[in-house]
Simulated scan of single mutants.
Amino acid sequence: MKLIVLALTALVSTCSFGQITFEHGTLKEALEKAKQAKKPLFVDVYATWCGPCKQMAATAFIDPEVSKFYNANFVSLKLDGEKNDGPEVMTKYGINAYPTLLYFDASGNLAGKVVGAMQAKQLLSKGVEIANPESNPVFLARKEYLKSKKKQADLKAYVKVLSDNQHDSLTKYAAEYYQKFPKLNLADPVELVVFKSAEHDYKNPLSIQYLNDEKNLADKDEYLNKINDYFMATYQQAKAANDFEIMKSMVVELFPYLQKCNVPNLPSMDEYLEYVKTQFENQ
Rank of each mutant, 00 (worst) to 15 (best):
D154K: 01
V43P: 02
Y202G: 11
L224F: 06
D168V: 07
A58H: 09
V276Q: 02
F104H: 03
G112Y: 01
V252C: 02
D201H: 07
D85L: 00
G112K: 00
L217R: 12
D213L: 13
V193W: 04
G108P: 08
L217Y: 10
G86C: 08
E29W: 02
T59D: 13
K121Y: 00
V128T: 09
R142D: 01
A30Y: 01
K172S: 12
Q237P: 04
M56K: 08
S148P: 01
D219C: 10
P87G: 12
L224Q: 13
G127R: 01
G25F: 01
D188I: 15
N282T: 08
F69S: 03
M247I: 09
T100F: 02
A117M: 10
A157Y: 00
H24G: 06
V161I: 14
A111P: 04
P52N: 08
A37E: 12
L170C: 12
L258Y: 11
Y173V: 13
K277M: 07
V263D: 06
F17H: 15
C261V: 02
I62E: 08
W49V: 06
V263L: 07
E23S: 15
Y275R: 01
V276Y: 07
L211G: 10
M269C: 11
Q36P: 03
L110C: 07
A117S: 12
Q236W: 00
A241G: 03
Y173N: 06
F22N: 04
D229F: 05
Y210F: 15
I246M: 10
D229I: 07
S197Y: 09
Q236F: 07
K160Q: 14
K2D: 15
F104C: 01
P264L: 02
S125L: 00
N136E: 02
L110E: 11
N262L: 01
D164L: 14
K172E: 15
A111E: 04
Y70Q: 06
F280E: 03
C15H: 10
Q283P: 05
A175N: 13
A30Q: 03
E144K: 06
E129T: 06
